[in-house]
Computed example of a mutant assay.
Amino acid sequence: MRSRVHVLFVLAVVLLLGSCSVFTETTNTTAPAPERDRLVVGVGNAVETAPLRLAVADGLFQRGGLSVELVELKEGDDPVSVLTNGEVDVVFASNVALFRAAGKGAKIRLHGEAYVAGTGSMALVTLPDSAYTDPGQLEAPRIAVPSPNGLGSLTSRSVLEAAGVDPTKVTFPVIPFDGMVEALRTGRVDAAWLTEPHLTAAQTEHGVRLLADCAHGATESFPMSAYAATEKFSSANPRTLALFRELLAKAQQRGADSGAVRGELTHLGDIDDVTASLVSLGSYPQVVHAERLQRVADLMHGAGLLSERLDVASLVPKGELP
């Protein structure tokens, strides 16, 4: 009996030591390093990219083990072309531009949402003395937008249709943001679609009047923009982009502090103190939410901007789906 007890005791000790060895080996195992320690990221609108810009400026990414170089995109640049041409590793772009490209066969992956519209984040405006005072007033309004078949035309059609206007009768002259007030003055367009900070600047400098809030109704809390990389780059650098997403989430969290965002906007672009203090801010998501983004793709499909329904979840890295 004593011999049997002794054997069981020895066996228990051996198993215990073995398990300790296993735990020690697991604990000491280090995760593989990212494939690269530097990313080039193309950025645009200062309001929508504010958290990323602030995080890069104060070293959050550097401390996290990833050097991020920001490249400024001009208003007329096609961000998807900049990305697919290899000029940047990751690019900021409107969701409409990204989904339109994906619908045409571009192989892209979404690695972060940038911005979701809040009340007053985007709107149709007219001059103070304009006779166009109600969005349903004109049968065939001409609306200035900064790009063809983009976020401006998509959201404008939505609010005008809700006001009783046939969306097929609306025309969209393409005019840069800095030329829209002049286009209103000369009568080239009836209204202009503006986003922040251009919207607040036009209100304070030219007294433009709000005709319709484009973040209302079907486009309330509308996802406006995101960060994307090509499928090829994403497949070759999964750990690097996982680190980018992790650090971007921390950066986006800072966007909840509107005071901090406003306080830094003057350092992020051509935005004066008054405009920075008055801009209408939306929100900065910390993760890619496919169901939220699907709203954009479905609205695009309904408006004819996508020939077939796009499954947004197919653009999100599988491990990132909520």
Rank of each mutant, 00 (worst) to 15 (best):
A226F: 09
S277E: 07
A228M: 09
A297S: 10
G255Q: 00
R209Q: 12
R254C: 07
V288T: 15
H216R: 14
L268A: 02
T219V: 07
E246T: 06
L278Q: 15
F222Y: 11
S283I: 03
D272A: 08
S258K: 14
A212D: 12
G255P: 08
G263Q: 06
F233Q: 11
T230W: 02
A256I: 07
L281T: 10
V288Q: 04
N237H: 14
D270K: 10
P285M: 05
Y227K: 05
A218E: 00
A236S: 14
T219H: 00
R245T: 00
S283A: 07
A256M: 06
A226G: 06
D270M: 08
E231R: 01
S283G: 03
L265W: 11
E220S: 10
S234G: 03
A249F: 10
S235W: 00
D270N: 10
G259R: 08
K232Y: 06
F233E: 06
A297H: 00
F233P: 05
H289D: 15
G217W: 00
S225I: 01
E264V: 11
H267Q: 15
S277F: 04
S258H: 15
V287G: 09
D273I: 06
L268H: 02
A290H: 14
R292Y: 08
L247C: 03
T266Y: 03
L241T: 04
L211A: 02
F233A: 14
R239A: 15
L293E: 01
Q286L: 08
G282A: 09
P238D: 01
R292Q: 08
F233V: 07
L265D: 06
A229H: 05
R245G: 01
C214W: 00
N237L: 05
D213G: 11
Q286D: 13
L211I: 11
C214D: 13
Q252C: 10
T275P: 06
S225L: 05
A260H: 04
F244S: 06
P223Q: 05
A276C: 06
A236L: 12
Q294H: 13
G259V: 02
R262E: 12
T275M: 09
G217E: 10
Y227I: 01
L278R: 11
Y227H: 01
V261S: 09
S235Q: 09
E291L: 04
E291Q: 04
G259D: 09
C214T: 09
P223S: 08
G282M: 12
D213N: 13
L211R: 10
G259H: 04
A226Q: 01
V274W: 08
A249P: 13
A297P: 03
A242R: 04
A276F: 03
R254I: 09
V279Q: 09
V279K: 10
S234R: 04
E231T: 13
A212W: 06
L265F: 05
K250L: 14
V288M: 10
R245K: 08
D272R: 12
N237Q: 11
S235A: 13
L241N: 01
D257I: 07
M224Y: 11
L293V: 04
A242N: 08
V274Q: 01
A229M: 13
T275W: 02
D298K: 07
C214V: 05
A229T: 15
L247R: 03
V296E: 02
A242L: 13
R295V: 01
H216N: 14
A236N: 11
